[in-house]
Simulated assay, not measured.
Amino acid sequence: MDRAIRQLAAPARTFAHMLSSTPRGARLARLLAMVELRSWDVPQDLTERAELVVAELAANAVLHGSPPGHRVRLVLVYDPPARRLRVEVIDARGDLAPPPHATAAEPDALTTGGRGLSLVTALVDHWDAVPHPHGGKTVRAVLSERAPRT
């Protein structure tokens, strides 16, 4: 029997880590993400954008999303064939969702919350916030490798 054997796609790679809801925890989220993405040989463009996205989402979760004593969870899922990365940051404040898809920040935006989500919007394919099944919320961002500039 001559049957072609179908090649299996490379499995998605996942990473999850609980972090303290402190500025140190937010910095650690960025550092852990970079180490993991580099070990997976994620393309440099994707890794660099992910670093900024993880830093912003983790900082927001620590600052706005987790009361003292709660933890923040960082999840990375990389699909090598699609060259697509999903970043999730889960915090305890389901009642406090980020504003809908921020665009270019107004000049006075720094007094009301900064420009971080505008930066996230510019770097990712899309992002959203959804309720987490056990309380809290998950802020998700999807990044795909961008075509090289010519």
Rank of each mutant, 00 (worst) to 15 (best):
S39F: 04
T22K: 08
A33T: 07
H134L: 12
I5G: 07
L8Y: 11
R84Y: 00
G69C: 02
L110G: 12
T112I: 13
K137E: 10
A9L: 12
A82N: 12
A50Q: 00
L31W: 10
T111Y: 12
R6L: 14
S144F: 01
P11H: 10
H17F: 14
N60M: 05
L117W: 12
R83H: 14
V35D: 15
G114L: 09
L52P: 01
A61H: 01
D108I: 09
A82G: 07
S20W: 09
V54K: 02
R49A: 03
K137Y: 09
R30L: 08
S118I: 10
D108M: 13
R3T: 15
G94P: 09
L37W: 03
A59G: 13
L119P: 00
E145H: 06
P43H: 05
S144M: 05
L76K: 03
G69Y: 06
P131S: 11
L110S: 11
A141V: 11
G65E: 03
A29V: 04
E51Y: 09
T112V: 14
F15Q: 00
H64C: 06
L123M: 13
G69H: 04
A141W: 08
A105N: 02
R27Q: 13
P133Q: 06
S144T: 13
A9C: 03
W127M: 05
P98A: 11
R140N: 07
V54W: 08
R49K: 11
V89M: 10
R24A: 15
P100G: 07
A104L: 11
L19D: 00
L143K: 01
R27P: 00
P81L: 05
Q44W: 10
T112C: 11
S118F: 10
A97G: 07
P23C: 06
A129Q: 12
A55H: 07
R84H: 02
P133G: 02
A58L: 06
V77W: 03
L63C: 04
V130N: 08
A104Q: 06
K137M: 15
L143I: 07
S144P: 00
M1W: 12
I5R: 14
A58D: 02
H126G: 06
T103I: 08
G94T: 05
